[in-house]
Write a protein that binds this DNA or RNA. Structure first.
Lengths: 246, 246
DNA sequence: CGGCTCGTTGACAATAATCAAGCGAGGTGG
DNA sequence: CCACCTCGCTTGATTATTGTCAACGAGCCG
């Protein structure tokens, strides 16, 4: 049983190992803390604004996004999650959700009861700092998006996003920085970039015309990764892919 | 000596007490962990992108902002800090700064060596969760700004910002939600809202014309707070001003 | 076959940036 | 004490970017 859990948590462990070494006891604690696995279909909400979840959710496979609706009826994503991400680890200290998370594609989830996380914080200070770190990585991605939304053109933001997703997916063993599976619609892209779907479409076509992007049948490739990074001002420092004691 | 420290940390303790009760030992630990106080002048950087600080910095008085520059030479703020905020608590788990923080006005800072924070994480699990919580509150503010930048008009974003700052300053005892001191320039506002300074100015004037804002000599008042909140779609849930066990 | 969703296109309107100039208060030095 | 200088704020004219509205086509699934 534990072997199955461990296998499913592989992207998660890769994500952690990119930042610090994990002790055997810590790894076991993370495996034991999983109470269940669940599946949700594309488009379903995983948690909702206002919820007070009693559990945290780790994305095992699929894609998910944190979002909120605004009065005009538009949606804005604040973060796209890839496998290995904790979707709502912050709900453990924060208690109440101030936003929702939806599945962008069929997802498998690993469930961590808050009580199990609390036990970790009481018994494993170093592991606690790593969990803390994970929530801070979310914050770093969100800072980056503020900068992109505030100061980059729509085209540069799109290039940045495709570079970011490539780097994150590669880090968890799910593709290459310039070649990965991405089951999103152009509306999803628009909701990430803060654009109308019409304009998102035009931006995608412009990137295609410049030979910076192909995106068909849920597969993204970046034929000229260096140029895409330059256009999107992508500097992966903010991903903190540095393994060191925390 | 400790009384002086405690007095200076008053906004910080207020900020914490808005979220959870603090034990006497925890309070003492937070007081003892301060190694020094420092002053910085307006415009100075407090920490810089790429730094690997050995200490965390708490804002005692003044205003500061996290920011990054983009290739065009423009600046984007990702968060404005008010007294009682930890400016770079995240540097403790994250190690390397992926952005800079500057003083927007003369600031007094309390210094917490990373080692002192680490000791807290080894000895005070509940207090550790509260520190974690504080970094998550930064994340919540940043999420909110993604939503504002992505989906609200410039005018709505400005209204939102003035409401947010009022709520945060009131919570630490430094003004009222509709009346507070704000020593920022219009350029600072532009860098927060992701606008040019010219457009920021026009937005301010539009709010003035609608009798939603006065802003002279560093003093902000919101004559019609309800209308400002409505325009900016300001719902303070994301501030998590809820006192409960964490 | 028909009804979805998703992607695409064109014409037009709204929002915000850019460029250029001038104003006014506060501080500095002669 | 006053001239001058700087910084922040303001304004107008113009351009660039992005949104809105409307329509249509391709592919998939029941």
């Amino acid at each position: 049983m534990d072997e199955l859990v461990e296998k499913r948590l592989d992207p998660f462990f890769r994500r952690l190992e990119h930042r610090d070494a994990l002790g055997m006891a810590e790894q076991q604690a993370l495996i034991k803390a999983v109470s269940a696995f669940e599946d949700v279909g594309a488009g379903a909400d995983i948690v909702r604004e206002g919820d007070r979840p009693e559990r945290c959710t780790l994305l095992v496979s699929g894609f998910a996004a944190r979002y909120r609706m605004v009065a005009s009826g538009e949606r804005q994503f604040t973060l796209i999650h890839v496998p290995g991400d904790f979707i709502d680890l912050h709900s453990f200290p924060l208690k109440e959700m101030d936003h929702s998370v939806m599945a962008l594609a069929p997802c498998q989830l690993a469930i961590y009861p808050h009580q199990a996380i609390k036990n970790i914080t009481e018994e494993f200070p170093h592991l606690t700092r790593l969990l803390w770190l994970l929530t801070l990585l979310d914050g770093a991605l969100q800072r980056e998006w503020i900068i992109c939304l505030g100061r980059l053109s729509a085209e540069a933001r799109a290039a940045h996003l495709f570079c970011e997703l490539g780097a994150r997916l590669e880090a968890v063993g799910l593709g290459a920085a310039d070649d990965y599976r991405l089951p999103l619609t152009q509306q999803d892209l628009a909701d990430t970039l803060g654009l109308s779907s019409v304009h998102a479409n035009r931006v995608v076509q412009s990137l295609r015309k410049k030979n910076l992007l192909t995106w068909q049948a849920n597969r993204v490739t970046l034929p000229n990764l260096a140029a895409a990074k330059a256009l999107g001002e992508f500097d992966e420092r903010y991903l903190h892919h540095i393994r060191e004691p925390r």
